[in-house]
Design a protein around this nucleic acid. Sequence first.
DNA 1: AACCTGTGCAACCGCGTATTG
DNA 2: GCAATACGCGGTTGCACAGGT
Length: 271
Amino acid sequence: MGRSPCCSKVGLHRGPWTTREDALLTIYIRTHGEGNWRSLPKKAGLLRCGKSCRLRWMNYLRPDIKRGNIGAEEEDLIVRLHFLLGNRWSLIAGRIPGRTDNEIKNYWNTHLSKKLRKQGFSLREAPRRSKRPNNNNNNNKNGLSDDRASEMEDQGPKIYAPKPIRFLPRLGEVSEMRMESSDASSSDSPDGDRLGFGWSPATGDGDDGLFQIGGFEHQMNYNQLEFGIDQYYGLSLQADDGQLERVYLEYSELLQSQVEMDLFQESTIVL
DNA sequence: AACCTGTGCAACCGCGTATTG
DNA sequence: GCAATACGCGGTTGCACAGGT
């Protein structure tokens, strides 16, 4: 019944990650892709729990993460999205290419909240989540805890927020690109044209092939291709100066007009 | 040089939700 | 439909480092 038991934490490493652990995790995910976090540590040869692996990958090792100082335009967008969305860091991060929810949360807590208070803004504290133990019998008829239900009543109608959309092609989409480009020259495909790359599978059963980008050709396998596209596509989007402003405007319009969030989600996929 | 204090950020914790059998 | 579990998220903690005394 249900899923298999969660990993035991006995004997697992905690605290800061070592270079070796980072390398093991990166290599494993580059080869097998994200997901199955519970079984990943064992398969990757790591003495960490899956949760820790996921966090390390999402917040630090992912190739599309933009490191370094948060720019003025990004800061402005964070402030405005926070005004619209509150402490929904994941949603905010999903609209800022290359930034993680943890990074934005930290930046808000250490820089922006103080800065805004200095400027005279009174910041609303986020409602505390109940620390009551998770007990399924404690749910009300809507499947919500009493605390959560009363919190929602206080806040009025609930707006259903979309899951943050990564500004990157996903595994299946890359597969589609590969399928579309399975003839001799993949740059004929619309995606290849727009992204400026092409993929020519080698003959045989393996995943090897020829990846073309910017006039250069690279021999690589499918997993390396996916990794490369992630990086390339992420960088190309980061170079779009007007994107952050458009993202904010979309959210702003959405909340004003109360358009269905899931329709909005469809409309904002940038691929 | 030694200590104290503040800051930044990676990592952890615990909860709610989604998924699975 | 239910129970068990994985996953994802936001809040919090703790450590390393910098700057001040």
